[in-house]
């Protein structure tokens, strides 16, 4: 097993579960496409794997129709927590060189499963990738950073790469492949590790209120200017430093403490 595509059977967000409206997310489709391209380039097989009930066979059959050679379904409810899903997947793909995932699922969207899998496999990781170039022994991945900046990564096997939905368009399955995939066998295996139900956050995260002194200023307008920092030029707000990574991290932590985001 060298190349793996992790796929999730999901419904449209906000809709009650209905198999007619369920399938692979665009991000998972991109992941599968990269896995298939890499397999063609390296001459390897692709294993498609999912965690879910029998309805989830649909995404595996779609993957088989597109060119995956092997399909595994870990029989478990779709409500399992991301860490447990990753543990279950990792236990079945030990030895995988390349693992391709969608960046996050449509229904929960935490994007944690790829990172957990990488941790289990002791693999390199490139998560939330917006562009990927396949090379013989590596993948050059581009990640989005704040302020329009990009991070360029070169990852080597074993590695987990999670991609956004727009990175690749899944090839259209041939008619006869589709027919064959409909009757292909799928390995259904039990989850060998405990699967806990995911705890969903039912409201947006709100940080605790902090007590702040009133801003200086005689008039409401003056105080508003201080609060919004509207009169200060943007150049004066920032601080440009050149530091070693460890010192830079310490500087960031100090700034966060100074600004009150972290307790001393």
């Amino acid at each position: 097993m060298s190349i793996v595509a992790c796929l999730k059977w999901v419904s449209h967000p906000g809709e009650p579960h209905d198999e007619r409206f369920s399938g692979m997310s665009p991000a998972d489709q991109s992941a599968l496409e990269f896995a298939l391209r890499q397999a063609e380039q390296l001459g390897r097989d692709v294993t498609a794997i999912t965690v879910g009930p029998s309805g989830a066979d649909k995404v595996l059959r779609d993957a088989l129709a597109c060119g995956a050679t092997h399909a595994i379904r870990i029989d478990a409810p779709t409500t399992a927590a991301g860490a447990d899903v990753a543990t279950a997947i990792a236990s079945h793909i030990a030895g995988a060189e390349w693992v391709w995932c969608g960046d996050y699922s449509l229904d929960r969207g935490a994007g944690s499963v790829p990172a957990f899998i990488a941790a289990h496999l002791l693999a390199e990781q490139a998560l939330g990738v917006i562009a990927a170039e396949l090379h013989d022994g590596s993948v050059h991945a581009t990640r989005r950073l704040d302020g329009g900046r990009r991070e360029l990564l070169e990852v080597h096997a074993p590695a987990v790469v999670s991609v956004e939905g727009a990175t690749a368009r899944l090839r259209r399955a041939g008619l006869h492949s589709l027919r064959t995939a409909n009757n292909a066998s799928i390995d259904v295996v039990p989850a060998t590790t405990p699967m806990h139900r995911a705890e969903f956050m039912v409201r947006p995260y709100r940080p605790r209120a902090r007590e702040l002194a009133a801003p200086p200023g005689d008039s409401p307008l003056d105080r508003l200017r201080v609060l919004t920092d509207a009169a200060t030029s943007s150049a004066a707000r920032g601080e440009k430093v050149t530091l070693a990574p460890a010192d830079a991290a310490e500087r960031i932590m100090r700034a966060l403490r100074d600004w009150g985001y972290l307790t001393p």
């Binding site: 259209r172 399955a173 041939g174 008619l175 006869h176 492949s177 589709l178």
Partner: peptide, 9 residues
């Protein structure tokens, strides 16, 4: 003939 690759049936 269908719109799929290899699409004749």
């Amino acid at each position: 003939r269908t719109d799929r690759p290899d699409g004749d049936l």
